[in-house]
Design a binder for these strands. Structure first.
Length: 700
DNA sequence: GAGCACTGC
């Protein structure tokens, strides 16, 4: 601890903090910023007038850093040093240093917008630019003006991007702290690989034959490629065995792996052995593998992005940014000098890679964030002029406003409604919180709570596609309830109700191949949602089991109607001659129900005329994921509302966001009072970056 | 009849 670089900068940092309200700290990996900054401030008396809060983008980081700091200070975790993550608040009245996820701090500002119990807030890992961090940055900017006398903000970033953050905070000082990484030699390819999979394979074998001890970390874009490379490596390494003096262990590493499998990557390594870890970008930030000396970087990442004009998400393989390339290379220099093999020429890196990753706020649907900001009810904040470090596109903000209006969270003037205010308190996406509100009016709150909770964990619920599914099991996945013909939401409800009837038996989950961790998470979410709904609940919150078929059909009917109201912006109509659907409310998209859905054609081979969907996502083609059948009678009033939307009024009559978006808004009333806005330098840079990005996408 | 990168309240 004593040799952490940051400690030599204590005086510099403190001088900057004393003289300024905001300070940016640039510290590379190993500088000790996450554990030491809070302690420095503590030593210097900043915990006397309030708490020093340190945000982290991830839960595990918040917990592990808090644990380490409590050890270093020799106090019990939860006393002077504590942490707060969802479902777990390990702080007490004595807590002076508090680690928390940025999502938790956002929730706290909902009930206490001035954050007056904090004397300092440190936004750690701000360079990762998570959606939540970006919103916090905007809120902090406002807060430091209001609380300038007794509040400090420190923002840490691992990259040169600190200058930009400094500009954002009126040219606040930037302190640079060196990291403790060993040098990493960068080796570029001479040309673009024909197949980066083959190229990775060849490079990995080359390292194994020629290089000294040390593990190899290979970055791939997804599970399929990881599995392919793992099996190819297995084959080739075996045939090389006489040529090499080392044994090889080949390990996949990605988010869908069961935790038990992930542990193999972090366990002790047998001597005289080289491990090949074939990973997604999970190994870029979330997980650190010890012993890595060689990194193979394909230069690609699979990235999820949102198109606000179609309401469609897509998962695309895109080039990484220079920052990401730097981060990947850094993974080779943690224990001793390393090497990073970039499977692309240096000219590609220089000319084609973006400097920084496009922040999440420019790649996501913003309905939830906009609702959150509106609910803060700060008279001095106008959402459309909200000061973001990087603004989301005008289309994206308009899309969010339209969505919120369609589900009654804001009125036609863009003002938050009473319903919207309650919705914002729920840790759910707006469509689901609106469903809960509606269900509460129609006697099916209990069922809606279950569905909302199930959807909060849905992706981790079902077992991953593992190669060894030959394990013996009592039931097949097909034995699970089938949604009674109404679709996936009803199926999720039925699954949870079955589990409830087994008294939440863990073995039951295992028998049905449901992820135990996922199901426990659902139970926690359901409890949390019930607590929030308690004060306005008009019916029971606990799981209700209907004895009779007719009763449950009535429940399903009410629930589907509530879902239809909540998902007003996620409606689709079946096409006349086949089972394709057309989305309603957006620029119409022709889509298919995802094959994993339990919704199946009826005896005449037809799917329901109308469905709501949880997600519209283009993978190999556009799909509706997680769908529920609804009645046309519920749909008609929504479509009437869609046709009457006046986006100009919703945006508070501000013309400036009209001019970029004419093309997407052709179905909406045209306004002739469009103000020609001159994009400032900041905006045009963003625009340029977007265009470069889109052009690159088009090329592929 | 296809398949989902990674987080978080």
């Amino acid at each position: 601890m004593a040799d952490l670089p940051i400690l030599q900068f204590e005086e510099t940092i403190m001088k900057a903090v004393e003289e300024n309200t905001v300070v940016v700290i640039i510290g590379e990996t190993g500088s000790g910023k996450s554990t030491q900054l809070s302690q420095i401030l503590h030593r210097r008396g900043y915990t006397k007038s309030g708490i020093v809060g340190v945000t982290q983008p991830r839960r595990v980081a918040a917990v592990s850093v808090a644990r380490r700091v409590s050890q270093e200070l020799g106090v019990r975790l939860g006393d002077e040093v504590g942490y707060a993550i969802r479902f777990e608040d390990r702080t007490s009245e004595r807590t002076r240093i508090k680690y928390l996820t940025d999502g938790v701090l956002l929730r706290e500002s909902l009930s206490n917008p001035e954050l007056d119990e904090y004397s300092v807030v440190i936004l750690d890992e701000a360079h990762e630019r998570s959606l939540n961090t970006d919103i916090l940055l905007g809120l902090m900017k406002r807060l430091v003006e209001r609380r300038a006398s007794n509040f400090k903000v420190l923002i840490t970033s691992a990259t040169l991007d600190g200058e930009k953050v400094s500009q954002f905070f009126s040219e606040c000082p930037v302190v640079r702290v060196p990291g403790k990484l060993f040098p990493v030699e960068i080796v570029y390819s001479h040309e673009r690989p024909v197949s980066y999979l083959e190229s990775s394979l060849a490079t990995a074998l080359d390292i194994h034959m020629k290089e000294g001890e040390g593990d190899v970390l290979i970055f791939m874009t997804g599970q399929d490629d990881i599995d392919k490379l793992v099996s190819k490596l297995e084959d080739r390494v075996r045939s090389l065995e006489e040529g090499s003096c080392m044994d090889a262990i080949i390990l996949p590493l990605h988010g869908s792996l069961q935790p038990e499998m992930q542990v193999r990557v972090f366990g002790p390594r047998p001597p005289n052995c080289r491990r090949f870890i074939v990973a997604t970008n999970i190994a870029e930030t979330s997980l650190t593998v010890d012993g890595v000396v060689y990194v193979i970087d394909s230069g690609y990442v699979k990235q999820r992005q949102y198109n606000p004009s179609t309401g469609m998400y897509s998962l695309d393989v895109v080039q990484i940014s220079k920052v990401q390339a730097h981060q990947r290379a850094g993974r080779a220099g943690r224990t001793r000098p390393g090497k990073c093999y970039r499977l692309y020429p240096s000219a590609v890196y220089e000319d084609e890679f973006l400097d920084v990753t496009i922040p999440e706020i420019q790649r996501s649907s913003l309905a939830g964030s906009v609702l959150y900001l509106k609910s803060l009810d700060l008279p001095d904040i106008d959402i459309l002029k909200f000061d973001f470090l990087d603004s989301p596109s005008p289309e994206s903000l308009q899309d969010a406003l339209k969505q919120l209006y369609l589900i009654d969270a804001i009125d036609e003037n863009g003002l938050i409604t009473r319903i919207g205010k309650t919705m914002a308190e729920l840790p759910l996406e707006p469509s689901l919180s609106r469903t809960l509100m509606e269900a509460n009016e129609h006697g099916c709150l209990s069922q809606a709570l279950t569905v909302a909770a199930m959807l909060s964990a849905e992706t981790t619920l079902l077992p991953g596609r593992s190669k060894n599914t030959e394990k013996k099991r009592k039931h097949d996945y097909l034995d699970l309830p089938d949604g009674s013909g109404w679709g996936d939401h009803i199926q999720l409800l039925q699954i949870y109700e079955c589990w409830h009837q087994t008294n939440y038996d863990i073995d039951w989950c295992k028998d049905y191949q449901l992820q135990v961790r996922g199901m426990k998470f659902v139970k926690d979410v359901r409890r949390q949602l019930s607590q929030i709904m308690q004060k306005i609940a008009k019916g029971p919150l606990d799981v209700q089991i209907s004895r009779r078929w007719k009763e449950s059909q009535q429940d399903y009917h009410n629930l589907r109607r509530a879902l239809c109201v909540g998902y007003a912006n996620q409606l689709a109509e079946r096409m006349v001659y086949h089972n394709g659907y057309r989305t309603l409310g957006f620029k119409p998209q022709v889509v298919q129900v995802h094959p994993s859905s339990v919704l199946k054609p009826d005896d005449e081979g037809k799917l329901p005329d109308y469905v709501v969907y949880q997600e519209l996502i283009a993978t190999s083609r556009p799909y509706l994921r997680t769908v529920c059948a609804v009645n046309i009678a519920w749909v008609t009033p929504i479509l009437d509302k869609v046709n009457k939307i006046n986006i100009n009024k919703l945006s508070g009559g501000i013309g400036r966001i009209e001019e970029h978006t004419e093309e997407n808004m052709s179905d909406l009333p045209k306004t002739d009072n469009v103000v020609a806005a001159v994009p400032d330098d900041h905006e045009s840079k963003i625009q340029a970056a977007r265009e470069r990005f889109l052009a690159r996408k088009g090329k592929k």
